[in-house]
């Protein structure tokens, strides 16, 4: 057991934990920041992802002691930091995830959103392939990733005032409503 001082979401927090405890354990069970999730406890699923000095890090594979002196951002920090910087509502990534249906069970999403946030901080207009790659360390079992990718693309598009991509089912339903189903042009050519 040793005293440990961590810089989390802009606060300097003090606690004590056994030497072998991971950053995830200290965040969850000592500091009460339970937003970071444990899905496998061995670096396979990404649910524990937090930002350390802006980089996505698996907190279940990081000893708490290794994070001393670094800036740690967890999911709990996103909305308050967004509000502090003059924003309204929630962080645009959080808001887009919510609107796009990317949160089903929600368990992988804290890690997923932080990976997404690190990506958009480093790359203002990533391609779909770049987004997929950036999120490939975060397993999701509910969504099939489709609405997650839409959420990230939506947040990116809205940041520059562009129109967010619309999934096929939205287009399709609008055609149904307008009675245009039969007139609809058949399928785009496959790649």
């Amino acid at each position: 057991m040793r005293g440990i001082e961590l810089d989390v979401n802009g606060d300097r927090l003090e606690t004590a934990a056994p030497d072998h405890w991971t950053l995830l354990e200290v965040l969850r069970y000592k500091l009460g920041l339970t937003g970071s999730k444990q899905g496998c406890d061995k670096g396979d699923c990404g649910a524990c992802t937090v930002l350390v000095d802006g980089q996505p890090v698996l907190s279940c594979l990081t000893l708490a002691a290794q994070a001393v002196g670094k800036e740690i951002t967890t999911v709990e920090g996103l909305r308050p930091m967004h509000l502090q910087s003059g924003g309204v509502g929630a962080d645009p990534i959080q808001d887009a995830f919510d609107r796009c249906g990317a949160l089903q069970c929600g368990f992988c999403q804290p890690g997923m959103m932080l990976s997404a946030r690190a990506l958009v901080a480093a790359n203002a207009s990533p391609s779909r392939e770049e987004i997929q790659k950036a999120l490939s360390g975060n397993l999701c079992r509910c969504t099939g990733y489709t609405q997650i990718l839409e959420a990230v693309e939506t947040a990116i598009a809205e940041r520059v005032g562009a129109e967010a991509p619309r999934p096929a089912w939205v287009e399709d339903r609008e055609h149904v409503r307008e009675g245009e189903l039969e007139a609809r042009t058949p399928a785009k050519e496959a790649k």
Partner: peptide, 22 residues
């Protein structure tokens, strides 16, 4: 396509899962 009732609670880390209970 309304928002989910618990979407924002999950997005902010507020939602409480079993292992979050102490």
């Amino acid at each position: 396509s309304h928002r989910k009732i618990d979407g924002m609670a999950k997005a902010t880390g507020e939602a409480v899962y079993a292992d979050d209970i102490q």
